[in-house]
């Protein structure tokens, strides 16, 4: 069975190799090897440029290598988690190589110089020394993003339904939406300063705008594209307008709404940096700007990685929500 998994997921597919090693995850062993290589290079070669976390980074990669070594014999007993790990086996191998090459090119050879490039150990150094400030920044950004994103998609969704449903609403609303849509968020900053009582509210507005507009446009498109005969069917069965909107138009438009929410999610992350220009004292966007100004690019990269991971995590969550709500689409798409 493990041989079968190996074949399905690792893509090696060579019986002669996998069969004698049944029960051993070959890619896990290779990953342990590449991570060990990264660790050895980090520890063994002298630093041309000091970044301050050589020892800890060598330790981290060593621990990684040991984990992969342990996994290579136990992964088949871990059920679905194990299958996921096996699936990403080639990625773990390449990741080890990537870390080794990155470390050598920056800290060990100095070909990619300070301050523009940072070795992985430099990022680790940032996480070790500045973790408390980063955590506070994550919390501030989370508050801003959460308030902005959720109010944005809520208003965008409601407006989109109205635009798609009512001709009169669409007559006045669609041209406005088309005008506002392409305006970059930073262009709003002067007005927002005047309109909103505090810079925090203005920032929320910018995030909400960025996430709300794609949701509004796609929801409107989805609602207006609903098959007319669905309405006819529902009306002959005794449905009133309320039923038509909530039980026909909205469920039918939901796949479109989710496309809009995905787009809104990406836009909202892109606009966070701009939104945190407005007098914020903490936040990942602020952290990026502050450290760019001081040419502390290692800190910038470190914060960027955190943002990318958070964004990827949220996208993953959104996929889970979509699969739950749109399970009926399985087999259609």
């Amino acid at each position: 069975m493990s041989a079968a998994i190996e074949e399905t997921f690792s893509g090696t597919g060579r019986q002669s190799v996998t069969l004698p090693l049944a029960g051993i995850w070959r890619n896990g062993l290779l990953a342990a090897g590449t991570w060990l290589l990264a660790s050895a290079l980090t520890y063994g070669l002298p630093d041309v440029i000091t970044w301050g976390a050589t020892g800890p980074f060598a330790a981290v990669t060593l621990v990684g290598a040991l984990i992969f070594l342990a996994l290579s014999v136990t992964v088949h007993r871990l059920g679905s988690t194990g299958r996921t790990l096996v699936h990403y086996g080639p990625w773990f191998i390449v990741l080890g190589l990537w870390l080794a090459a990155w470390e050598v090119l920056t800290a060990k050879l100095g070909w990619l110089p300070k301050p523009f490039f940072s070795p992985p150990e430099g990022l680790l150094h940032v996480y070790m020394t500045d973790w408390d400030r980063l955590l506070i920044c994550i919390a501030y950004t989370g508050r801003l993003w959460g308030l902005g994103f959720f109010s944005g998609i809520f208003v965008g969704f409601a407006g989109g339904v109205a635009l798609g449903w009512s001709k009169r609403f669409a007559y006045w609303g669609m041209p406005l939406l088309k005008l506002i849509g392409p305006v970059p968020a930073s262009a709003w900053i002067p007005c927002t300063f005047f309109i909103f009582p505090s810079t925090f509210h203005a920032s929320i507005f910018l995030v909400a705008l960025a996430s709300g507009i794609p949701v509004a446009i796609l929801t409107a498109a989805g609602v207006s594209q609903v098959n007319r005969s669905f309405y006819d069917v529902a009306r002959t069965l005794g449905a009133d307008n309320r039923f038509l909107i909530f039980k026909v138009a909205i469920p039918a438009a939901l796949p479109n709404v989710f496309v809009g929410i995905f787009m809104g999610l990406y836009y909202s992350f892109a606009v966070l940096v701009v939104a945190e220009m407005l007098g914020a004292k903490f936040g990942l966007g602020w952290y990026l700007q502050f450290n760019t100004a001081y040419s502390a690019y290692a800190n910038v990269y470190a914060a960027l990685i955190i943002m990318a991971l958070i964004c990827a995590g949220l996208v993953r969550l959104l996929f889970v929500a979509r699969d739950r709500l749109l399970g009926w689409q399985k087999g259609i798409l």
Partner: peptide
């Protein structure tokens, strides 16, 4: 007075049972 169309026009997001229930729900 109920109309049955050439296409079944079942609501794809509802199961058969939920589709049949539409009239009663409405």
């Amino acid at each position: 007075r109920i109309l049955v169309f050439q296409d079944a026009t079942l609501f794809p997001w509802r199961t058969v049972r939920a589709n049949v229930a539409i009239g009663l729900e409405a």
